[in-house]
């Protein structure tokens, strides 16, 4: 009897301490798009990692931790720090890809990481082809994922027109992404939805170059 009481007491205490996964995720996923400093972004990455440590069956916390590390590079200027941050993102992504090789979003994030590794003409050839391979894989798994076309658009935009790149070709991809972004805006807010803002920026850039 005593044991049952004790267990019940413990159970209640666990419940009161229980973390509201959905709510916490919602708030912090939203923050990812609003953070304006390196420290904030690092704090978010760390928080997503803590959530992932608790919610072992969820893939999104670890995905967002990896994505947050990728985003930290936007606040960095030296190549070494960028590489270290991308290495951290890659470690998390490698584990995710092992566990969920058929998740389209993971391959998009992989493509995004490869894009950010490009520092010059030499690494450009290597990483843009790796990035394109990841995007093809992502498209194979889910052709309706708008981020595929946003990332493809980026690759094409930064490829000289001579090699089949340029603003005009990129524009078509950004437009496709835009349609898909709009079609999917109603879905689960926890699922990845980044990219629409920058997609619009890039689309306007392409239109302006006409």
């Amino acid at each position: 009897m005593k044991t049952i009481v004790l267990l019940a007491a413990l159970f209640v205490s666990v419940l009161t301490m229980a973390n509201d996964y959905e709510e916490t995720m919602k708030i912090n996923v939203a923050k990812l798009e609003k953070s304006t400093s390196l420290n904030e972004m690092n704090q978010l990455a760390a928080l997503f990692m803590r959530i992932s440590d608790v919610e072992k069956n969820e893939w999104l916390p670890s995905y967002y931790a990896s994505y947050a590390y990728v985003r930290t590079t936007h606040f960095m200027h030296d190549a070494d720090s960028i590489d270290t941050a991308l290495d951290q993102a890659q470690v998390l992504l490698d584990d995710l890809l092992k566990a969920k090789p058929d998740e389209s979003e993971l391959h998009v994030l992989q493509a995004f990481i490869y894009q950010l590794r490009i520092t010059g003409a030499m690494s450009g050839y290597k990483y843009s082809s790796l990035s394109n391979q990841s995007l093809e894989k992502a498209e194979q798994l889910n052709a309706d994922n708008p981020r595929i076309y946003y990332c493809k658009g980026n690759n094409v935009y930064h490829t000289p027109a001579m090699f089949g790149g340029g603003a005009e070709k990129a524009q078509a991809l950004f437009e496709k992404a835009k349609l898909l972004f709009e079609a999917q805006s109603q879905k689960n807010e926890l699922l990845p939805h980044w990219g629409s803002y920058h997609n619009e920026v890039m689309l306007q850039k392409c239109l302006a170059e006409k």
Partner: peptide, 27 residues
């Protein structure tokens, strides 16, 4: 710098600053 400090089993935590220091509020 940036070490993830957490209370095991919870989301509560922080990261260390540029001097390796942290300060965490705990229930």
């Amino acid at each position: 710098i940036g070490v993830n400090i957490s209370i095991v089993g919870t989301y509560n935590g922080t990261i260390t600053d540029e001097n390796g220091l942290f300060d965490l509020e705990v229930d």
